[in-house]
Amino acid sequence: MIRLPLVLFFSAVLFSTGVYGVLARRNAVLVLMSIELMLNAVNVNLVAFSQFWHDITGQVFALFVIAVAAAEVGIGLAIVILIYRNRETINVDEVNLLKW
């Protein structure tokens, strides 16, 4: 059995990597990919705690997270395509219409 702190540390590293990607990258598609990375790190945590507490509910929640992530990617990429069609760019720094 893998010890819980190891898995928690591993998923924390993955999550931090995803956060860095969201904050530092400017390509909107890469930002979405970094969000996927963060969601996956959360999933690893859920599954690890599911094994630790001998309760399968964590795996059910991981399943829900995967379904919601699929929906999120569909909408997100559609929005990215729409932005590209209107603004000719997917650089998130240049999409600043809502910035005050």
Binding site: I2, V7, E36, N40, N43, V44, V47, A48, S50, Q51, Q59, A62, L63, I66, A69, A70
Partner: peptide
């Protein structure tokens, strides 16, 4: 990792969906 952590179904779902 899912496979090792006792979730073989999520292993399959991860590969198929993600």
């Amino acid at each position: 990792f899912y496979l090792v952590l006792g979730a073989p179904f999520l292993f399959a779902v991860q590969i198929i969906v993600y």
